[in-house]
Design a protein around this nucleic acid. Structure first.
Lengths: 191, 191
DNA sequence: CTCCAATGTGGACGTTGTCCAGATTCTTGT
DNA sequence: ACAAGAATCTGGACAACGTCCACATTGGAG
């Protein structure tokens, strides 16, 4: 039921539209992606998307969910592959920055309030955000038990870490910081 | 030559357009601001703006310059009012975050690559960016001479500081961090 | 005072987001 | 197997937008 050579019914338009839009996201900012262009790429009429997404913002929002999921798993894998609490924190930060550098438009979309509201997250976005906060939170829990970080406020520390990593990702995608600055700058704080 | 009751010639349309757009920026994201709406607010035809700005992006870009200038002076004033190097750094960070919290759309515009490219800054934007980097840079120069920060790499340190402050500003305007988190999180790092 | 460049106006065109009515296909109850 | 009915896709329409054009108005330099 998925594939369809008959022509009229696409079979899996929802995914095809997201894929087409994701392609465009590699080279174009979310703001400049038009629904009609996405439909054209998917080979359907300009109106077909409305049977799968309420409006343009809903498509972009779905893309934001995909991006957030990718960002999250990148961090999870990096943390799992690292040894030692401090190393895990560094790995998480580098994964975050690397994802942003590799997919700047997708990264920007995830944090674009026009499509992905943090205050009122979509039903699919909310659990991803929660998982990310838990990931960092549990890491910081371990961190404050190391002698070097004894007695620090975990809340303040995770807020500071997230801020640093996020800001670095942002400034690098914007070209304000060179990518090579990430590693030493992160070390300067985590040490 | 500036004021004009005659009607046809506005007298100071350039500034009036920027003011109108700045008003809209208080409540609307840059992406959703239309040139025609700005013209309407300024009381001129939809085409008048083209005699003062090359296109829509040029208007938004000029707004970005204004925003950057405001962000910069906010930092400069805060630094001037603080005593002690560490205190000055804290003051700079809080001013940065405060500006973002007070004018989220303007702050977002300043760092929106669609209108304010960091790689190819406008002739008016470049010196502002340079001044901001000098402000932070000179502060860090002093900082690394304090005993507590002796021997740190100034480049890495200022990159880290800017990242933290910028990320915090971003995450707060997005609603991912509460405003009250700024102060303790900043202290957790600067201490 | 006259002419010209700057500044303003209205009209036009193509693109976009969205709504609507109708066509086509899939599925489900019998 | 077959007749609804739901899901999906199509084309047409409309308003708003960015931008280009030709033309009108005005202020200032010669």
């Amino acid at each position: 039921m998925s594939r369809s050579a008959s022509g009229y019914h696409h079979g899996n338009l929802q995914a095809a539209l997201e894929d087409a839009a994701l392609d465009l996201l590699e080279t174009t900012s979310a703001a400049k992606i038009s629904l009609r262009e996405v439909a054209r790429r998917a080979g359907v009429s300009h109106n077909a998307p409305y049977h799968h997404f309420g409006d343009r913002a809903a498509l972009l929002s779905a893309l934001g969910v995909r991006g957030m999921a990718a960002l999250l798993t990148a961090q999870e894998e990096a943390v799992a592959a690292a040894d030692g609490t401090v190393e895990k924190v560094r790995a998480l930060g580098l994964a975050y920055v690397s994802y942003a550098a590799a997919h700047p438009q997708a990264f920007a979309l995830v944090f674009d309030p026009d499509y992905c509201a943090a205050g009122a997250p979509s039903a699919e976005m909310a659990p991803l955000i929660a998982r990310n906060e838990e990931l960092l939170g549990s890491l910081v829990e371990q961190l404050v038990q190391e002698p070097a970080y004894e007695g620090r406020d975990p809340m303040a520390l995770s807020a500071a870490l997230w801020s640093t990593v996020h800001g670095m990702a942002q400034l690098i995608t914007l070209g304000h910081l060179p990518v090579e600055a990430a590693q030493p700058a992160l070390d300067a704080l985590v040490r």
